[in-house]
């Protein structure tokens, strides 16, 4: 690792000020940033690393006014262990528990998990080896290279000489799909936004956060999604690995097609530059399955297929479409099964 200055920020204001200056990056649990620094992947190596963990009051889990609120510095292990999360948003606890490995979960945070940089191996290659679009370059190397883990739903567009191009790195965060399915709202030092919108950006950053802006709280509103939400991940190993695909299905709020019934939310990670909302599958279910009891094997199958609508895979990652179909189908069938005593 090359040298850098280091600040243990005592307050949000101090951290924000430090980060507004050029050449500074924030670190929380370190799970993502330290690897990026060791791999020397930033085109401009940061002069200063600003530690956020030293800021008091950002590590909490509470249930207030029907909403579950988590401080951005809450560790994944605390979320996994929390009886409050277990009661009100069990899928969030399950997702936190399946991230990385036991020791890493003790230090990595929910905020860090949401803000992590893409895992694309071209982007991550040592010493900034590939001058890719995410670093301001003119190419996405995965587009023509080894893209077995990349997007099946197109790329994040960027302008390059010769016209529009796309970066096909994916969002592989453990918690994003579950939070989006739960209709979570993210609070930053300057605004409050829906979870999905947090990731809805171009290629030069992975979140909407601006310089000096910090994620402070994740709030899961009482719309019913949190209680019904389910989480499933697929990885090659049972520990350590990032998910190849992860997804959440939840029911809550108001069904536009069936008043008085909840609507469906389906969000899939690891398949697109942002967490992917499976709109066609949601609509199919909103129309045909106002109640979980309406789920038939045929409908579950059809929803899995609908979840891949709009996908165009590479030869090397077409397996992801099969996984989406299977995992959605199985998760829906599990939801339709009568609860065990």
């Amino acid at each position: 690792m090359r040298p850098f200055n280091h600040i243990n920020a005592a307050s949000i204001a101090e951290a924000g000020e430090a980060l507004k200056k050029g050449g500074a990056v924030a670190v929380a649990g370190g799970g993502d940033l330290l690897g990026a620094l060791k791999d020397n992947i930033f085109p401009e190596y940061p002069r200063t690393v600003v530690n956020l963990k030293s800021i008091p009051g950002l590590n909490y889990i509470k249930f207030e006014d029907g909403a579950l609120k988590l401080g951005a510095l809450t560790t994944l292990a605390d979320i996994a262990r929390s009886p409050i999360v277990g009661e009100h948003a069990p899928a969030l606890a399950a997702a936190a528990k399946s991230a990385s490995s036991p020791a890493l979960r003790e230090t990595t945070t929910i905020g860090g998990n949401l803000c992590q940089l893409p895992r694309c191996w071209y982007f991550r290659k040592l010493n900034n080896r590939f001058d890719c679009a995410r670093k301001g370059g003119e190419r996405c190397f995965a587009l023509t290279g080894d893209n077995r883990y990349h997007s099946v739903f197109g790329g994040a567009g960027f302008e390059a000489p010769g016209g529009q191009r796309a970066c096909v790195a994916v969002n592989q965060g453990e918690l994003a799909p579950v939070l989006i399915a739960m209709a979570a709202r993210l609070k930053t030092t300057t605004r409050e936004i829906e979870a999905f919108n947090f990731f809805d950006v171009g290629v030069l950053s992975s979140t909407v956060l601006e310089a000096g802006e910090l994620l402070t709280e994740i709030e899961i509103p009482p719309l019913g999604f949190a209680e019904t939400c389910r989480y499933r991940r697929f990885a090659f190993r049972k520990s350590i690995d990032f998910p190849i695909i992860n997804l959440s299905i939840a029911r809550g709020g108001e069904n536009p097609n069936s008043p008085g019934k909840p609507r469906w939310h389906i969000c899939i990670g690891g398949v697109a530059p942002t967490p992917h909302i499976a709109k066609a599958a949601e609509e199919l279910l909103n129309v045909n399955a106002p109640s979980a009891a309406d789920l038939t094997p045929e409908l579950a199958q059809a929803a899995g297929v609908a979840a891949t609508e709009g996908a165009r895979a590479f030869e090397s990652n077409a397996y992801k479409l099969q996984l989406i179909k299977t995992l959605i189908k199985r998760e829906l069938l599990a939801m339709s099964a009568p609860p065990a005593d």
Partner: peptide, 20 residues
């Protein structure tokens, strides 16, 4: 024999979404 290779060998790697 990672899952992607197994699925490919089984002919289950449709590249267009929305298909059975």
């Amino acid at each position: 024999a990672t899952p992607d290779r197994v699925l490919k060998a089984l002919g289950k790697c449709e590249r267009e979404g929305g298909n059975q």
